[in-house]
Write a protein that binds this DNA or RNA. Structure first.
Lengths: 111, 111
DNA sequence: TGTCTACCTATAGACACTCTACATGTAGAG
DNA sequence: CTCTACATGTAGAGTGTCTATAGGTAGACA
């Protein structure tokens, strides 16, 4: 249960963009969504998520705005169109990545 | 073509152990084997491989000895039994990892 | 009233691994 | 004599994730 911490490297962006694909969410909700979608296996700490969201916003893949709900302030993020393109790229990169690593880890007995 | 450099993080050990599963190899040959098995997609630099091999030896997963072939010196690495166990662990971690990330990136339309 | 939990955002610094760049050297082809 | 393939290795940069800490609101419960 739970994922090796190093392994996430380079895949965080894909996860965040993916979770924001169909609806805007704020940081805290994003963390919960990741946990829910992964069946509880992903517990990404705030120290990872918040800086990553800023980075993605800086890159133009996300846009954010503040909202107040029930007296609490939230910064809600949504995908930009550049973010949508990036997400598509991340998805195909993921498929390529798993194919390549998989071919080394479990080579088919063709030889 | 080619893999994002960050993405390899945390998977290098699995790759190295895997390539040494059936035969001992020296560093240079390991790099070639990775490239071959991945269909040319993996070009792991020496600055990654040599330190990683030492790390794995230190961890007890590999053992090495020097050999001279055609006037050239090679340090040949082979899996220890602890390394075999580690490889099995890496493989199941890999399957778990891809399952988890996959479930976030491409959720089944169950909802 | 006080305290506890859930909600919510954020930063500083440690950490770990991969990469770039460089250094060193042999063997064989042309 | 030069070039390429073979072969090992290190120093230091880079980067992104984590740990630890900080601050704060709202509501439940005693």
């Amino acid at each position: 249960m739970g994922v090796n911490t190093d392994a996430l490297r380079g895949h965080m962006d894909a996860l965040l963009l993916s979770v924001l694909e169909h609806e805007p969410l704020h940081g805290y909700a994003i963390i919960e969504a990741l946990q829910a979608r992964s069946g509880g296996a992903l517990s990404v700490p705030t120290g990872t998520v918040y800086p990553a969201l800023r980075r993605l916003e800086q890159a133009g893949y996300l846009a954010s705005e503040w909202a107040t709900v029930g007296g609490r302030k939230r910064r809600t993020y949504r995908l930009t169109s550049a973010g949508r393109t990036a997400l598509a790229g991340e998805r195909s990169a993921w498929r390529e990545f798993t194919g390549i690593i998989g071919s080394v880890l479990e080579p088919r007995a063709t030889k």
